[in-house]
Amino acid sequence: MTSTRFDIIIIGAGPAGLSFARSLANSPLRMAIIDPANMNALRAPAPDGREIALTHPSKDLLQQLGAWDAVPTDQIFYLRSAKVVDGESPFELHFKTPSHAKLSEDTLGYLISNHHIRTALFQQTEHQGNLTWFTEHKVQTVAANLDEARVVLSNGEQLTAQLVVAADSRFSQTRQQMGIPVDMHDFGRTVITCRIEHTASNDNTAFECFHYSRTLAILPLTDTLSSAVITIDSQHINEVLDLDDTGLAADLEQRLKGRLGTITVASPRHRYPLVGTHARRFYSTRFALIGDAAVGMHPVTAHGFNLGLQSQAILTELIQKAHAQQADIGSPNLLQQYDRRHQFKTRPIYHGTNFVVKLFTTETPPAKLARTAVLRISSALSPIRKLISQQLTG
């Protein structure tokens, strides 16, 4: 059977795959992108309940890709400060921008719904001249040798390339086919999200409260509109799902001790199992991982999407440099450079985040004492708060 030849094959048309394709829009490299969804679903993805926290570097990257300006301005929300509370502890961590700062100029970060980001990125890539779309297709097999990589689609069609880039989720099947081991941590928890309206202002402040078996995060959108993110032991999810909207609103009011006034549930609820993944390496023969296929983060520190953008930016830089030098864009040396650079960024954040989650959700007396000590010391020492703020803002 004959095969169609490309320079790069991208598996997955999510934010990471689309960003990577767009980053190489001005290059002469011929690319294919494969996704099981149809073009209409990619063009107008449905709301999925996920509000994405973006750092300043991520904003810059999206601006370079043309996606930032494609998001409706009234759908970009500003995060001025963040508070972390441990149950009934009197201590809290509070990170904020300078009191004189304007929201449009100086913030901890930005919040944009996932479906708006996906729509904006698709708008930039849909008619990209060097990109061929293979939608409504799944990858049946992917394999590679020293000379080329080969992808077989579910309809039997074959594609070959110098490099295959996988952006097919934290549960990547192509990663498994290419023999890349992964560290996986099932937290045994489920995330439930919904939007809420409230009578008191959220002051553009994110709020995270750890209540051991349940964590509640409030992400500010407009002054009186927020996203509620409930993380709960999976065996107890019906405690939330069985509540009607009135019951859930009353439960949130009680847990927030009235700080947002009267609450009304303003959207359907969405739920996601909570599993963290980190590939032990980000490459194989003529094959690279980006986005969640490389690192799937716990959402508590809001690093996942930002690390995904960084991954494609690092790989793009190395590919552009190699192509300019007429070198092999799928060489072991290039892929090993990518692996070293991205592992250096991700591994400490991944394991550090998992440690924080374990510390703040373990109910043993030593863990509770440790949490209180961490909050007390961190809230008292401004250098520590500054260091954490730098991590939050990127």
Rank of each mutant, 00 (worst) to 15 (best):
S3T: 11
I9P: 05
S23W: 06
L24A: 02
P28M: 02
M31A: 09
M39V: 11
L42A: 00
E51N: 02
I52A: 03
S58K: 01
V84I: 15
D86Q: 15
L93S: 09
H94Q: 07
T97V: 10
P98N: 13
T107Y: 08
G109K: 00
N114M: 05
I117S: 05
A120W: 06
Q124S: 13
Q124I: 10
H127P: 04
H127E: 05
Q128R: 07
L131M: 09
T135P: 06
V139W: 00
N145S: 12
L159F: 08
T160D: 10
A161V: 13
Q162V: 01
D168T: 06
D168Y: 09
S172R: 08
S172H: 03
Q173N: 10
Q177W: 09
P181K: 10
H185P: 05
I196N: 02
S201F: 10
A206F: 04
F207I: 00
E208M: 09
T222R: 14
T222Q: 15
T224G: 01
T224P: 01
A228P: 10
S234L: 08
V240N: 10
L243C: 14
A249T: 12
E253A: 04
Q254A: 14
L256M: 00
V275E: 12
F287G: 04
A288H: 01
V295H: 15
M297G: 07
M297T: 11
G308L: 10
Q320R: 05
H323A: 01
D328S: 03
G330Q: 01
S331T: 00
D339I: 06
Q343L: 11
Q343H: 14
N354E: 12
L359C: 03
L369Q: 14
R376A: 15
L381A: 12
P383I: 11
K386V: 14
G394L: 02
